[in-house]
Structures are given as structure tokens and as C-alpha cells.
Simulated assay, not measured.
Amino acid sequence: MQLIGNGGERFDDVREIGVLRGGGLGDLLFAVPALEALAAAYPDARITLLGTPTAPAVLRGRTDAVHAFEELPVVPGVRDSGEGAPTLADFESRLAGRFDLAVQLHGGGRNSNPFLLRLGARHTVGTATEDAEVTERWVRYVYYQHEVLRALEVVSLAGAAPVTLDPRVRVSDEERVAVRDRLGVRTASDRSGRLVVIHPGATDPRRRWSPDRFAAVARARLAAGDDVFLVGDATDVPAAAAIRAALPADTADRVHDRTGALPLTDLPAVLAAADVMVGDDSGPRHLAVAVGTPTVGVFWFGNVVNAGPFDRGRHRVHLSYVTRCPVCGVDVTQVGWTAERCAHDPSYVDEVEPQAVLDDVADLLRTT
């Protein structure tokens, strides 16, 4: 496959590559195709991912594109918080001068480019806003661009051509079977043998479909004999509780709620065991794509540009076309670091109807 964008020649004698990608689970997964491209372009190089503890929890042993992980220090605009994180001095003392190539996949570069450049790599590539310090080779950061393609365009500057567009996170068949066996999905006579995973959360509350809508999906799939598995972190516990409260009592043995309790290291296997995953524009939905599980996603239309799945054979999207805050009327299409942000957090996606989502769940169960 050809390079994305202007591209560039591969650098010579690259043995150590450092890739900066912090942020949340979705941010990490958007970088995985770029990591695979680097691994293919520089097969003799050791790739170290500079990120948060999310990275090894999800990727260690599940990809061949990353060989080592280094936890980022707390630095404004690079990592805002992190208990037990290394100090900046310690981080730099261990890594300065190590890398032949350093790759910035972390935002527009205002903070991340100076941070990366302090490591003293022989070569650097990255993005840059108009007011950011630039790397050796760089491409302009423009907010509306799919994050996977943005990262692939950056590594193309180092001569790394794409080998995949979807992130890939490896889960074994044995892991899938073990999850389903623990739940009794495969053997119980009163079950359909299908498992639907639901994640009722998103980092930004405006991207969250309301619990009553997720509950409508869960009720319908339970009525069809499916098992339902609720996932999410501690912030999603209230939504999961509201969903459970809206479900028939006689289906309780087929509702598996591990919200706030499932270790992140176990999430790939749970998602891979599902027949379909339903969620907002969120990290778990992106992880479901990476492990090969069909998804039905509820998106604000602007987020599809940056984060939507690429195919429709396995992944469906339902779009909400809200352009102004329902409370104050501010234009919400102007997003990114320069955008006006009002103080209101209503759902921008509740105009999506549960029946439309259910129709796609049923279609994916028939066709994938």
C-alpha cells in the first residue's frame, strides 16, 4: 500500500524507535495501525511505546508491533495526572539519547513536540498546529481527520506504509471459549447461544446515549434469548445500574454486570467473546473493533469523522445531527482546542432511536 500524504523516505540505521501516544483507550487504539506500519517498515528496530498504564494492560502479549512500554510522567498537555508516574527527570535520564527515531502521535504538538524533542532522538516526525514547535518532518494538525489516518500520515513521513487500517489486538480462541463457558452461554438450554456486550459510557457526557435507550436494546435481546454483558469503568456504574433496574427480574441470570469491576487486562477477551457489541463512541467500542467483534455504535456525527469504523459489513453507526447545544444554542460543530465550550452536558445522541440500533444488531447477527 502506498504512503499516506506526502510521505518520506525511510531513515537509515534505525534500531530504536520511541512512539509518544498517551490519552485514553481509544487514543491508544487509533495508534495501533501506525505502530504496525512502523514495525513493517523497520523490522529490525525495537519499538517502545511511551504512554499510560492502559497501553501494556491492553497490548502486552496481544501485538507484535510494540516491544517495550514506558510510562509517561505527569506533564501538562502530555499526561495530566497519574499516581505513581515517574518524574520527568527520571523519565528523561533513562530515555534521552536512546532513540534513533521518535514519533509524535499525541495531539497537535504544542506540548507534545517540545516533550518529545527533549529526548534527543536522531530523527523526529509528528504533527504541528500553527503555534507548535515542529519536528524534523511534520504535517499540519487539522482537527477533522480520522485519528487512525492521522497517525498513519505521521509515520508515512518516516517511510512507513500502512499494512492495516483497523487496529488489531490479538485474542485466542481459547480465551473466547473460556469467557463464554464461564457465563454458560454455550451450554444452557434457555439461552440462544449469543452474547451481546453493552458499554453505556463515554469520556464526554455529551457522547453518551441515555441508559433507558441501552435498556431497550438489552430487553429486546434478552427476549430473544441472548445473554447481555455490561462493561465499563467506575464512571459507568450508575448507567449500568439504571439499565439493570429497567430489565425484567426473570432475566437476571442472563445479565452479567462487571461495570467498574472487570480488569482492563480481561476486557479484550470479553469483547472478543461477544457476537455483537453495542456502545457509544468510546474506548471499549474501539477495542471491540480491534479484537474482531461486530459493533453497533451511537455517534454524534462530528465524531464519526475522527473515530468512526471504516467498514459496514461488521460495524454500523447511528448518527445524531445535533449542531447546537440544546441548552444554550452555541455552535458545537466548532470543536478542538480553539472551540468555544459551553458549560452544558446534555446528550447530543439521544435522538438516535433504540429500534434503529436493534435492527442493525439483528442484521449483524444474521450476516457476520
Score class of each variant (00 low, 15 high):
G159D: 11
R194H: 14
V177R: 15
A188L: 13
R170M: 09
T187A: 14
T164I: 08
R186E: 12
R182I: 02
R191G: 08
S156Y: 12
P167G: 05
D166A: 10
R191Y: 04
V185G: 07
L183S: 03
A158E: 01
E153W: 07
G201L: 09
L183I: 09
S156R: 06
D166K: 13
L165C: 13
V185P: 01
R194I: 11
P162K: 05
A178V: 03
S172V: 01
L183N: 02
V177G: 10
V197D: 03
V185T: 14
V179R: 11
R194E: 12
V185I: 13
D190Y: 04
L183F: 02
A161L: 15
S156T: 15
D166Q: 11
T187K: 05
R186K: 12
V154S: 00
V196G: 01
V169N: 00
D190N: 07
R180L: 06
A178T: 05
A188Y: 08
V155C: 06
H199Q: 15
D166P: 00
L165E: 15
A202R: 05
L195K: 06
V177S: 15
D166W: 04
V155H: 02
V154Q: 00
R170S: 09
R180W: 03
R170L: 09
P200T: 15
G193K: 04
S156L: 13
A202Y: 07
G201A: 11
E174Y: 01
V179Q: 05
L183H: 06
A202T: 12
R191W: 06
R191V: 12
V163E: 07
V154Y: 00
V169K: 00
V179S: 08
V179G: 02
A160H: 12
V155Q: 05
R182G: 09
A161D: 15
R180Q: 10
V196E: 03
T187W: 08
V185L: 10
L157G: 03
G184H: 03
R180G: 01
P200K: 14
D190E: 13
V196R: 01
V196H: 02
V163M: 10
E174M: 09
R191C: 04
V179W: 02
R194G: 13
S189R: 14
S156P: 09
H199L: 08
V196C: 04
E174G: 14
R182E: 11
L183P: 00
G193Q: 05
